[in-house]
Amino acid sequence: MKQLILKEIDDLIIGSLGIVAFISFFIGGVVAIQTALNLTNPLIPKSLIAFATRQSVILEFAPTFISIIMAGRAGSYITSSIGTMRVTEQIDALEVMGVNAINYLVFPKIVAFTLYPFVIAISMFLGILGGWLAGVYGGFVGSDQFITGIQTDFIPFHVFYAFLKTFIFGMLLATIPSFHGFYMKGGALEVGKASTTSFVWTSVVIITVNYIITQLLLS
């Protein structure tokens, strides 16, 4: 089981770092540029660019947007790999041997996704870094102003809120695609359909749960 968990961590968590880092860095930069371009009033301090970037990245972009990306990347991988095992009788083989197939296939993925908040922490850091680089080197804001903006009105509870929902999204990312793969019926074509359905449902549930958690914790 230990080996299976390590393999899932490698496939699902470490394997996703590249795309998460790439998207986070550039989206952070874009958020900073968009905010800067919309700040036409000279009375509004430039540090607001950093403030807006920080709030967008920590509250929504990193936990929610990256989770939707992960539903496509890791979720489709989970559904198609388990679905292919179903189609090619590998799950039947496990059951005939007396192995609890759900425990064997799904549990390591759930354990792997407990590390998902670390991915989001990296995403948050790179998003803000991207915003700083785009803001400072794009000539929109000075480095000191950006650092000041990042520290302005910082509420630690927001970080707790972000990581709490990240953890819940991680559990959803592990279980919904696994369900769609495990209980699929048919052949290779249905594996593709199951992956698509799984992505749609995971995204819908993430967005809905995001709304509920935000309503409960922040309103």
């Binding site: 393999k7 292919t84 095992m85 090619t88 009788e89 590998q90 005939v96 041997m97 007396g98």
Partner: peptide, 20 residues
């Protein structure tokens, strides 16, 4: 039943070897 299952060997139509 679990013990009995360990006494059973099965060869599936498509072999059902674990790809990984």
């Amino acid at each position: 039943k679990r013990k009995l299952r360990t006494e059973i060997g099965m060869v599936f139509q498509g072999s059902a070897l674990f790809d990984s």
